[in-house]
Computed example of a mutant assay.
Amino acid sequence: MKRVEDRIRVLIAERGMTLLQLAIQSNITEATLHAILNRNDAKYSQLIRMARTLNVTVAYLMGESEIQNISDVQETQAGYVVLKTEEVLDMQRKIIELQAKLLAKLTESEV
């Protein structure tokens, strides 16, 4: 089962939802949802909203991954690491500080 339409249909059935509920909760029209399901005519922004509503990753919805929820990802199994935004920002600040120190040392050695 690789098609987006198939995955959407299975997920809404598993969650006991209707197509109308998915459309409303994803902030897309019911006609748009039917176009997606019948003609595989989805914009990425629509896929993001549906994935959030269905609590799955866009990669899963598109058939690129068998991992439904990013919180289920384990580093050793999938090669992913889940980080909080604050942790990423802290690492970026440290990198910038180290780059500044390195640049200062290089500038000193040139003088």
Rank of each mutant, 00 (worst) to 15 (best):
L11I: 07
V73T: 09
R49N: 06
I36P: 02
K105N: 12
T107Q: 14
K101V: 11
L33M: 06
L102R: 14
V58N: 02
Q74E: 11
R49P: 00
Q74S: 04
I95T: 12
S71W: 07
A78F: 13
H34T: 14
G79Y: 04
A59T: 01
L47N: 04
R7L: 14
L19S: 03
T53F: 00
K84Q: 11
Q25L: 08
V10R: 15
Q77I: 10
H34M: 14
I36T: 04
D90K: 13
R93N: 10
K43V: 02
L83W: 07
E64L: 06
V58P: 01
V56S: 02
I28L: 05
R7V: 12
D41W: 06
T85W: 08
E75R: 13
D90C: 07
K43D: 05
I12V: 14
L20C: 01
T85R: 15
E5M: 06
I48A: 05
L54R: 04
A31D: 05
S71P: 01
S109E: 14
E5G: 14
G79K: 05
Q77V: 09
D41E: 13
N69P: 02
I8D: 02
E5Y: 07
S109D: 11
L106T: 07
S45V: 10
Q74K: 13
V56L: 04
L102N: 13
N55Q: 14
N38K: 14
A13P: 01
V56P: 00
K43G: 03
L11P: 01
A42S: 10
T107C: 05
Y44T: 12
V58K: 02
I67C: 06
Q92R: 15
R7Y: 09
R52H: 08
E14S: 06
L98H: 09
T76H: 08
G79I: 03
L89E: 15
I12C: 05
I28H: 01
E66M: 02
I96Y: 08
V58D: 03
A104W: 09
S109F: 10
E5D: 14
G16E: 05
M62C: 12
R39A: 10
M91A: 08
L89K: 15
E14R: 12
T32M: 08
V10D: 14
S45C: 06
Y60E: 02
L103E: 15
I95K: 15
T76V: 09
A13N: 10
T29G: 15
Y80G: 01
V10H: 10
L54G: 02
M1E: 10
M91I: 04
